[in-house]
């Protein structure tokens, strides 16, 4: 059985008085693909943002690749090299070219030589199918293209875990497909993936496990088939019926 690369134990988080995460227990095996879904405000984004310490939590333990995030000796910058994140709003660096966006991590953080980084960058751009955009700026690309660049930027750091925070929610419908295709190809490649999304088709095709959250708690965890056919909790049933009605 593969080791748990992410282990969240009894995690509680408060925003001032708002209880955002309630005693969350969440673990992910190496190589697993987990989709986290739920109504908005359920804490899904908060939860995955705790994994790379973009958010802090109040109590509990979070262990990523054997390192406890609460331990003062854990080098968070080093740990972040192992966990990549793709954001809803891409967050590309507008003042750098597409290629520079991808190579800046390897060059500045991993101290890679520029030629090697550029080579790696071009390979990744080929992989996400937009090599001809290398010297353009993010503002010149469509949303779908920007998100693919964001994925390439994450891959450039050779992470073990890739966190997706609603990667397609800000995209026009016709561009969602191209991004999902890239994400599906990653699923074949041994990355551990935790993806917060509403794209249930993606979940069905690719996920090993679906986690359903509402009101800061994990209410259900199951394989995609079981979850979609037989949601156990009423909340999940309600959620699914709303999704189906809207798509």
């Amino acid at each position: 059985m593969s080791q748990n690369i992410i282990e969240m134990i009894n995690v509680d988080k408060y925003y001032d008085t708002f209880h955002a995460l309630k005693d969350v227990n969440f673990s992910v095996k190496k190589g697993e693909i987990v989709v986290v879904c739920g109504p908005s405000g359920s804490g899904k984004s908060t939860m995955i943002r705790c994994i790379n310490k973009l958010e802090d939590f109040n109590s509990g333990d979070l262990i990523v690749d054997g390192k406890n995030l609460k331990d003062k000796s854990t080098n968070i910058n080093k740990l972040r090299q192992q966990t990549g994140m793709v954001f809803q709003h891409f967050n590309l660096f507008p003042h750098k070219t597409i290629l520079e966006n991808i190579t800046i991590g390897p060059i500045q953080v991993k101290k890679m030589a520029k030629e090697d980084a550029d080579k790696l960058g071009m390979e990744l751009l080929e992989k996400v199918k937009i090599p001809h955009q290398a010297s353009k700026y993010p503002g010149e690309l469509s949303g779908g293209q920007q998100q693919r660049v964001a994925i390439a930027r994450t891959l450039a750091m050779e992470p073990d875990v890739i966190l997706f925070d609603e990667p397609t929610s800000a995209l026009d419908p016709e561009m969602i497909g191209e991004v999902l295709d890239v994400m599906k190809s990653l699923a074949d490649e041994n990355y551990t993936i935790v993806c917060v999304t509403h794209e249930m088709g993606f979940a069905k095709e690719v996920a090993n496990r679906i986690v359903f959250m509402a009101d800061g708690m994990i209410l259900e965890e199951n394989t995609p088939e079981s979850f979609f056919e037989n949601p156990k909790t009423e909340r999940a049933q309600q959620f699914l019926s709303e999704i189906i009605n809207h798509s």
């Binding site: 790379n52 973009l54 954001f87 590309l92 660096f93 953080v109 964001a150």
Partner: peptide, 22 residues
């Protein structure tokens, strides 16, 4: 936007690098 600092952090930059480059 806060996302710029966050994106820089997620690719492993520390505060100084994120400030300087991004």
């Amino acid at each position: 936007p806060k996302g710029q600092m966050e994106a820089a952090k997620t690719i492993g930059m520390n505060y100084v690098q994120a400030m300087y480059h991004v």
